[in-house]
Design a binder for these strands. Structure first.
Lengths: 340, 340
DNA sequence: GTTAGCACTCTAAGGTGTCGAGTGCTAACC
DNA sequence: GGTTAGCACTCGACACCTTAGAGTGCTAAC
């Protein structure tokens, strides 16, 4: 249908323009900039229809119109045109994977910084490794006090996890080392998710040893606590006119300072690599006028990197997705190339 | 001198009032609220003097007056009255040291959160352990690829450090384990600062072993990279009228997202436990209208915790210092009580 | 179906007037 | 001589009005 096609084009033009300017879009603007064959009056009729269909909102009588959440959804699902990065932008992203910078700063922090400074949104990087993907290479118990020990787990991919154990019985340092050695030898190659089961089937000969076993089974840290989180570019968000209202800005920034909230925002539902969540879809009241574009990359060492860009619903979705894609590409290159 | 004393009192009243209200203070306000025996005209004369002496600025002719940086300095050095916390506040701080919360979130993060939510300033916590304070308990090399290894250092106090080593020569996993065991036995009890010297005096029998020694000597991470940093309550700052200007807010928040800048802000000069830096004294252009109150606590395990509160120069210095003191007290209690 | 024209609405921006808070100065007071 | 009352003056905040501009919806003509 030709008419439907035209409505689409007009809606797309409105969204494009609004994303660019943040100003309500009027019929005249569309007629001049996007659909020169049609008069503003015609556009007005179409816009009126689109408003009735729920794609547009008007802030008040004589302002232009603003895309609704439903419009953004349609835009992302059907109207998104690929937005390849420029050569400079690609190079900029790749430069943060340069191995020479490796020592100074964490890779995740560099990714967050690069993405946020390129897109002007806030960027968050979460690194999780599912326990079943982590095989134990070595284990070590370090005495802290007579009823506390530090448990250090080193996985075969080189990740280190540590947490303290509170013990029921006291245990001498020498004995702790012995237990440590035995456990290390017996559990090598065991995945962290199988650890409790493996431990349950073991019996210790001393009270101290038994209390270590017990503590290791019972005192596992929460999975969430194991996720590494880095956020960058929060202050970028203050550039957007939607946050020139200090209260709104504070509400959003406060979310972006709360670890649990950020983790919940970046939670991926299915197995999708990319996801775009718009406004209410973000799941938090405070972010109902934000959008979040996330990408999850499963790396060869089992690690899952979830990278999110957070900005106003009026987001340059195409650019954001392209930037994430490029980061994913570089990430895989770096990590799959490194251990051959 | 009585006159001088009166000038002091008036200046103090002005600063107190300005800290409370953020509004330029007029002579009438002082006469009514603080010095009821004196008329506003007298106060005006004194204020005029104080302005000439550089303690006050007037934003424009008919506004009240505002304390200058010099005034705050005097205020902090000589006029500060102790500001004990309320029972609730003390309890609130202590509650974040509760061991039950221990697993969910890092202690530093909890301190930062508690301090910032109590004072409404931004709080930063830096944890450093001087290398000379850290004695090696155990060392482990984990193969990553044939020319890369992960070095894990566990200190006697239970801290874990890790970084990757790039090796000149390739080395087989079995050999790496052997080297690892030998080094671990030989270096036990050695302080991390003595490590390079100790390593230099050693000789390996294989090329692989030698390259490990070499890499361990040469590829030490920077001290700054070893500092743990947590920041909380950034969004609090948006509540202050001095940051209702979005540009100012952005500039400050951007500083508070840059690790190196925060570390430089919290750098303590001498051996002082507490320090107050006002405006230009903070050392950064971006924070010339901020103040930073820091406290450094040296814990029994050698760790140094530096805790900073960042807010407008119009800061409640007394309260900030009391809060830091209380945190220090709780901190020492927790850590010195824990390993007896 | 498309368009021109028109009346209407609403915001943003600029201008004006008033109020209140504050200052500096002077002259009088104790 | 320090203190105070009084007065003229300044400046920002606020309310109010006006105007210009952009946008809409409706109607009638093409």
């Amino acid at each position: 249908m030709d008419l439907v096609d035209r409505k689409y084009r007009i809606l797309q033009a409105i969204i494009d323009d609004y994303i660019l300017t943040a100003l309500p879009v009027g019929s005249r603007t569309i007629s001049r900039k996007y659909e020169q064959k049609l008069s503003s009056a015609t556009i007005r009729n179409e816009m009126s229809d689109l408003e009735e269909l729920g794609y547009l909102d008007s802030p008040h009588t004589s302002a232009g119109r603003v895309p609704s959440y439903k419009a953004y959804r349609l835009y992302v699902d059907q109207m998104l045109r690929p937005m390849p990065l420029s050569v400079e932008e690609t190079a900029f992203i790749q430069s943060c994977f340069d191995r020479r910078a490796h020592q100074v700063e964490d890779l995740s922090a560099r990714i967050a910084k690069a993405l946020s400074s390129m897109t002007h949104y806030a960027a968050a990087v979460v690194t999780r490794t599912p326990r079943e993907e982590q095989r134990l290479s070595h284990l070590q118990l370090v005495p802290v006090s007579d009823r506390r020990a530090l448990l250090i787990l080193v996985t075969q991919s080189g990740a280190v996890r540590q947490h303290t154990l509170d013990l029921d019985a006291s245990i001498a340092p020498e004995e702790l080392y012995t237990v440590s050695r035995i456990l290390s030898a017996r559990l090598e190659g065991c995945s962290l998710s199988d650890l409790p089961a493996a431990l349950s089937s073991m019996r210790a000969t001393t009270a101290g040893g038994q209390s270590v076993l017990q503590a290791m089974i019972e005192q596992q840290p929460r999975e969430d606590a194991e996720a590494a989180l880095v956020v960058g570019g929060r202050s970028n968000l203050l550039n957007f006119p939607e946050y020139s209202d200090v209260d709104k800005a504070r509400a959003l920034l406060s979310v972006l300072e709360t670890r649990e909230k950020i983790l919940s925002l970046l939670k991926q539902d299915g197995e999708m690599e990319f996801s775009v969540r718009i406004g209410p879809e973000t799941g938090l009241e405070e972010t109902r006028d934000c959008s979040i574009v996330t990408a999850s990359f499963r790396l060869s060492d089992g690690r899952v990197n979830t990278i999110g860009l957070i900005g106003p619903t009026r987001m340059q979705y195409g650019r954001a997705l392209s930037a994430l894609e490029e980061v994913g590409r570089s990430l895989r290159e770096l990590l799959d190339g490194q251990d051959g």
